[in-house]
């Protein structure tokens, strides 16, 4: 499958870096490039993990499934990709079903239908550690040539990853925290609007917002955003009360 044309061009990588608003987005793009270049007949799931000296690890995955596989390892604080990352050597599990050393990992990811895992470190220096993780549902995927191709591919990402870390310094807040903060700001603003509109208290306003989300079966944050964008949709307290 993967030949040496599995290497991205420098232009491709630079464009990605220039077009990415943040480090997470850049990593995400990188996993997509890796998955498309390395994948053969059986699609490959790719994830890249970066641990920087300051700040938490960033994980980007080409698909939701790859993300679940990666995060499972963080839950156990162990796994093939974390081993590759921390010990900086390639980890290959040719067949999860027969591998004794990784039997516990095989059990942990059994529901994802993955048969084989390859994790390759990426040299990024400066106290950071990175690894490219590939997952496949086909046990025969990682033959020696493919392993070599993936290693070469990982090596080719080293320079652009170093650059990306320079361009995007560690975020003070990890991604999920930042999105929660943004969400909270929007929810709070919508709650204030509901309060002013109904001259009600904070708790009643949150209740109204929650009820609006429930009855329309949409996410609370989306409803809050709608309310801010379109003031006519502000929920009102109906006479007789909602309780």
């Amino acid at each position: 499958m993967a030949d040496n044309d599995a290497l991205p061009t420098a232009e491709q990588l630079q464009d990605l870096l220039l077009e990415s608003p943040g480090f997470t987005e850049f990593l995400l793009g990188l996993t997509a490039i890796s998955a498309s270049l390395l994948g053969g007949e059986t699609p490959l799931l790719c994830a890249i993990t970066v641990e920087r000296e300051a700040g938490p690890a960033t994980v980007a995955s080409s698909t939701e499934a790859a993300r679940a596989l990666d995060e499972r390892q963080y839950a156990y604080d162990n796994g093939p990709c974390l081993t590759a990352l921390r010990q900086q050597h390639t980890v290959l599990i040719p067949d999860l079903q027969t591998d004794e050393h990784w039997a516990w990992y095989a059990r942990a990811v059994a529901d994802e239908g993955i048969r084989t895992v390859l994790a390759v470190p990426i040299q990024t220096g400066n106290g950071s550690r990175s690894a490219l993780n590939c997952y496949s549902t086909d046990a025969g995927t990682f033959d020696p040539e493919t392993v070599a191709a993936v290693e070469e591919h990982a090596a080719s990402l080293s320079r652009i990853l170093r650059l990306a870390m320079r361009v995007h310094p560690t975020d003070a807040y990890p991604e999920h925290l930042r999105s929660a903060l943004q969400s909270r700001a929007i929810v709070d603003a919508a709650v204030s609007l509901i309060m002013v509109h109904n001259r009600c208290g904070h708790e009643d306003a949150v209740k109204l917002l929650h009820l609006a989300s429930r009855s329309s079966n949409r996410r609370l944050h989306d409803i809050a955003q709608d309310i801010l964008q379109n003031a006519s949709d502000i929920p009102v307290i109906t006479p007789g009360g909602e309780r």
């Binding site: 925290l177 917002l209 944050h221």
Partner: peptide, 14 residues
């Protein structure tokens, strides 16, 4: 679901 993740999300929706 992990606890911190859930709490963060819950905090995010108010």
């Amino acid at each position: 679901i992990n606890l911190t993740g859930l709490w963060t999300y819950y905090c995010g929706i108010g």
